[in-house]
Design a protein around this nucleic acid. Structure first.
Lengths: 234, 234
DNA sequence: CCAAAAGTGTTGCTCGTACACCCATGA
DNA sequence: TCATGGGTGTACGAGCAACACTTTTGG
């Protein structure tokens, strides 16, 4: 590191959140509608500047998560996605934003009321469509977030992070199908997942969804990596 | 994003470089010895603060690369590794550093003289050893860089980025063996790599290394992903 | 009984590993 | 000629796609 501290330019550091969830049969992302310029009224990722010089980046991400979406940080996967710092990305001043990626189970009442600000859930296909306008460079960030999520399902057990605490094999398979936009053979999927030691723990319970044979219920296990990996067809 | 611009804390944004290369039979990382406090005299990653408010992060990384190591940015893989921003990571003031990862072919004269500052090449095993002191949180960054490199060899063609423009199959295999710290079957490796379309382009030339049958020379191809992937034994 | 969903068995293929074997060179 | 490294052939097994088949429920 060079240390010409007297020439250090003024840069504002922000933290943004790409919170993905599977809702209503689609991969959706949590967005807020901006109340002030620039990009007033436009969709944007929830986020904000560091609260103080002493605030850790991860802590800032967790704080923004609760503040803006009403979600708790416990039992929710949160990882750094990347840092975006093009000089002209914010017209007001130089802003470098560290973006975090979160996977959330489907929410009963998606932060409609309460202390959360106006958080909206929108399908990523719709948000990434060229007709949808998104503030700053957030469309690119969302695109990166979705690609990261798709890739993570291949070699980690994070697909289960989209499921409630207890879920069926079909619930998990539908996460994969929706995130990847493909269809998977239920029988091979079942065999494959049960073959990964530590991915799922059977609760012993069974649940009947509408019609047909009741499905076994599972909880998330300790495994974090998926071995062998679950590759999508490309 | 919230927009309480008047409360934005002062944060310095730096760019650090984790330049990895395979040299002398070991995975090595480029470091500099700090000339001023804090951590004076200690080993650190090359890097520095943004040159101006208008400088792009990627551009700053490329600039630091040439300034501190004498390496050109063309024909060298450079990607963002991650951002490190613990509040106490720099005792002087709050610094958030965006770290970039670079893969370099073995260098004939490793920036010994010329316009480059005092850049040193050290084996990562030695640097990561608990007896070696490294400035700031750079040991953690180096550890992340090495893990990322190991993982990237599995599913991308970036192993060839450690090789000179023309190289033999054995050169490439040794990159894998050294980076992963394993030994690979030369015959199966050969078949596997030649089976990936677009990874290597044979030049038609052959070269004789000391003794034995001469090896075919290859150049890097257009492929970036390795399919099927080359998984290490874990 | 029938439809529908859950789960098991089986087959054929792709790919990886292990290793026998041949090829081309320097000493 | 032998040692050394480059490269091909082949056999066995793991893992996966495709799909026939059985199990268990609601109507």
């Amino acid at each position: 590191m060079t240390d010409d501290a007297w020439t250090i330019p003024e840069v504002a550091v922000a933290v943004d959140l790409a919170v993905l969830t599977v809702h209503d049969g689609a991969l959706q992302i949590m967005l807020v509608r901006r109340g002030i310029p620039p990009f007033e009224g436009m969709l944007a990722l929830p986020g904000g500047f560091l609260a103080s010089t002493a605030e850790d980046l991860d802590a800032a991400a967790a704080r923004e998560l609760t503040e803006e979406t009403g979600l708790g940080t416990e039992d929710l996967h949160l990882e750094q996605l990347g840092t975006y710092g093009a000089p002209d990305r914010d017209p007001r001043r130089r802003v470098v934003t560290v973006c975090y990626l979160a996977f959330s189970p489907d929410l009963p009442t998606p932060t409609a009321g309460g202390d959360a600000r106006e958080a909206i859930l929108l399908p990523v296909d719709e948000v990434l469509d060229h007709r949808t306008a998104v503030a700053f460079d957030h469309k690119k960030i969302i695109s990166d977030a979705v690609e990261r999520a798709r890739s993570k399902l291949e070699y980690t057990t994070l697909g289960a992070a989209f499921c409630p605490p207890e879920f069926t094999m079909t619930d998990l398979r539908q996460v994969y199908e929706i995130v990847w936009g493909t269809s998977l053979d239920p029988r091979n999927f079942h065999r494959k997942i049960t073959g990964v030691t530590g991915f799922l723990v059977p609760t012993g319970e069974r649940v009947s969804r509408q019609v047909g044979r009741p499905a076994a219920l599972y909880r998330r296990g300790d495994a974090t990596v998926l071995h062998p990996a679950m590759l999508r067809n490309r």
